[in-house]
Design a binder for these strands. Structure first.
Length: 602
RNA sequence: GUCCCCGUAGCUCAGUAGGAUAGAGCAACGGAUUCCUAAUCCGUAGGUCGUGAGUUCGAAUCUCGCCGGGGACGCCA
């Protein structure tokens, strides 16, 4: 239960009765009424601006209106006191019984606590990672992978029907270059005497683009699968050539992209990321998806052939004005109309991506979210314009741009050189610090803010390492529960038994404050989900852990506040219920992040 | 030149469908350990929320201008 939503309904209910009683004109606009936690805890548990918002249209003074509304709110059982403050805020203090009931609710729900139905089962498509299938994922990809995955889980928890999708960019020049690079390794595996420089001259653009060693096994695998049947050898001159490109390239390209996607999937699996749907750009193009979407746009006069102004700022050397097929993006809020076809006649990436989004929309996703690297920022407007066009205003696209990750090691920037032995791949980082650490740290910043990822600091056991700090709180609870098992029978310690116990023993203000913090979790889930901001959960968990650690240490100063007091069984069981609640809420939050709560810290 | 993001304590950052006296960690300083893990906790100090206007009962939050940092700007994805 989102208690603020609960009290918002209570406020509306009270306002209706005031209208019936003639204290408020009928038809008051209630949409701007907000019920939320006060900024200052000393102001109470719940606050509302209702009186201030309604005063003007009702022709009343805010404080007069507040007096009457507060009196009605005070009559509800859950409300211990209703006070008026400042320009007309109404602050509610809730009864201790209400808070204990929240704890009981948490224990009943377990780690599922905080789940919501605000999403109403609405289908949402979250597309993330979508890296070119040309090699292993690097650290930069990890952030998008984690943000997308956590956002998907968050939306699920808030009641949306989420599909995790990966759009495979397997149709462009990049995979062409991959095929050439793979072919070089294939020839090597066959024992061909051809050096890199010689082969590079044969490649389009005269460059061998992917030179990483990860393609060596791929070359060998090609030999295993095809023998020398793909090889192109001029027997007369006994030289390797690339004359019959059309014969081998499609095969090698397919083979290579399949292998690279396997690699990507393995990398993602190491990070605990799993997509439900993989969409191939190549397949989309092959089945005429682009022609289809262009026809759709053409029918609505949204494409035309025109000449673009040269780009301002840095002008490409080879720029020349020429007519091209354009999408009328300016009709949907973009700054210029956008090209759909390249000069060689093939589709631009944008064109195929428009087709991709139409495909998603037709599969039932009016709500789409893409997670991109910040360097794709320039594409946001045009893609949103395209989504407006192809869904005729019925679909929405939110793009989460992930800023750079600065990989550090003990305060020193790790050089991102592909050749230097420094770990730059996603896999290396996961193996170095563990997937849980990577996942949590990637979510400790807003997606559009840069993030320092220090391999030393993230494994440090101190308060300034949020992963540790939150995990430590959970581990402490588990430690106490293990101790408790020496005093109590196991069936006294189940969540059900704890709920049925003497929760009324929880009377200390600090204890009730901790329960308040836990009870705030459902609101965090809903607001973070609506804002598409999973990082808020990291901050919430950190705060909850801090409150728990604080209370723990109160027991150092004042023995009567310890959780385990063997001679006071009722109090102890109530406190065990409380800390079990903390563990459940932390587990619930970590579950959204895909992080496993730990039983103990080594 | 146009567009997007950012600017909050010495440092790293929270805080936006507008709310009350702007928060946390680190660093600094002062404390707490016969105890369920002191890997923690308590306290002190630290601010023109880049800047100038506007909108209104009320602005870190919304609008506009300016300053500073980053990014993007046809035939890359």
């Amino acid at each position: 239960m989102n208690l603020f939503e609960h009290f918002r309904e209570r406020v509306i209910e009270a306002l209706e009765r005031m209208t019936e009683a003639g204290d408020l004109p009928a038809g008051a606009e209630t949409s701007r009424i907000v019920v939320e936690p006060p900024r200052e805890a000393t102001h109470g548990d719940v606050t509302t601006n209702a009186a201030m918002v309604l005063a003007k249209p009702a022709g009343l003074k805010p404080r007069d209106l507040a007096e009457k509304l507060a009196a009605r709110l005070a009559a509800f059982d859950e409300v211990a006191a209703a006070e008026i403050a400042g320009p007309g805020f109404i602050n509610l203090r809730l009864s201790d019984a209400f808070w204990r009931a929240r704890l009981a609710e948490i224990l009943r729900a377990g780690p599922a606590y905080g789940g919501s139905t605000v999403g109403g089962g609405q289908a949402v498509n979250v597309e993330y990672v979508s890296a070119n299938p040309t090699g292993p994922l690097h650290v930069g990809h990890a952030r998008g992978a984690v943000v997308g995955d956590a956002l998907a889980a968050l939306l699920e928890k808030a009641g949306f029907a989420v599909t995790r999708e990966y759009y495979i960019n397997d149709a462009g020049a990049q995979v062409e270059a991959l095929a050439w690079s793979a072919y070089y390794r294939y020839l090597q595996a066959l024992g061909a005497e051809i050096d890199e420089a010689t082969f590079a001259k044969l490649c389009p653009g005269g460059e061998l683009q992917y030179r990483g060693e990860y393609l060596i096994p791929l070359g060998k695998a090609l030999v295993e699968a095809y023998g020398d049947t793909l090889a192109d050898r001029d027997d007369v001159h006994a030289e390797w050539t690339v004359k019959s490109v059309d014969a081998w390239l499609p095969t090698v390209r397919q083979f290579a992209t399949d292998r690279m996607m396997d690699l990507v999937r393995e990398d993602l699996a190491a990070l605990g990321v799993k997509h439900a749907v993989f969409t191939s750009e190549r397949a989309l193009v092959a089945r005429g998806g682009v022609e289809e979407v262009l026809a759709f746009l053409a029918d609505r006069q949204l494409t035309y052939t025109g000449i673009l102004e040269p780009p301002k700022g840095k002008l490409p050397d080879d720029w020349e004005a020429r007519p091209q097929l354009l999408f009328r993006a300016t009709s949907f809020g973009d700054d210029v109309d956008r090209p759909l076809k390249k000069s060689d006649g093939s589709w631009t990436y944008f064109a195929t991506d428009v087709a991709n989004h139409l495909d998603k929309y037709r599969r039932g996703f009016a709500s789409m979210i893409n997670v991109w690297g910040a360097d794709h920022g320039g594409y946001v407007k045009r893609m949103q314009a395209a989504v407006k066009a192809i869904t005729e205003g019925r679909g929405s696209l939110d793009v989460k741009l992930c800023q750079m990750v600065n990989l550090m090691d003990g305060g020193q920037a790790v050089k991102m050189s592909k050749r230097a032995g420094t770990f730059v791949t996603l896999r290396d980082v996961v193996e170095e610090v563990g997937k849980d650490v990577v996942r949590f740290i990637m979510l400790t910043r807003k997606n559009d803010a840069q993030l320092d990822f220090d391999l030393k600091k993230v494994t440090e056991q101190s308060r300034d390492n949020p992963v540790f700090y939150v995990q430590y709180a959970h581990a402490r609870v588990r430690s106490v529960m293990r101790k408790a098992a020496e005093i109590f029978a196991l069936d006294e310690l189940t969540p059900d038994a704890l709920t049925a116990g003497s929760l009324e023993c929880l009377t200390d203000p600090e204890e009730l404050a901790l329960i308040r913090a836990m009870a705030g979790w459902p609101r965090i889930v809903e607001s973070a989900a609506e804002a598409h901001e999973p990082h808020r959960i990291a901050y919430y968990l950190y705060d909850l852990a801090a409150q728990f650690h604080t209370l723990w240490n109160k027991g150092n100063d004042d023995a009567s506040l310890r959780f385990l007091i063997p001679e006071e069984r009722a109090v102890t069981l109530a406190r065990l219920a409380m800390i079990q609640g903390v563990a459940f809420v932390i587990a619930s939050g970590l579950d959204v992040f895909g992080v496993t709560p730990v039983e103990e810290m080594r």
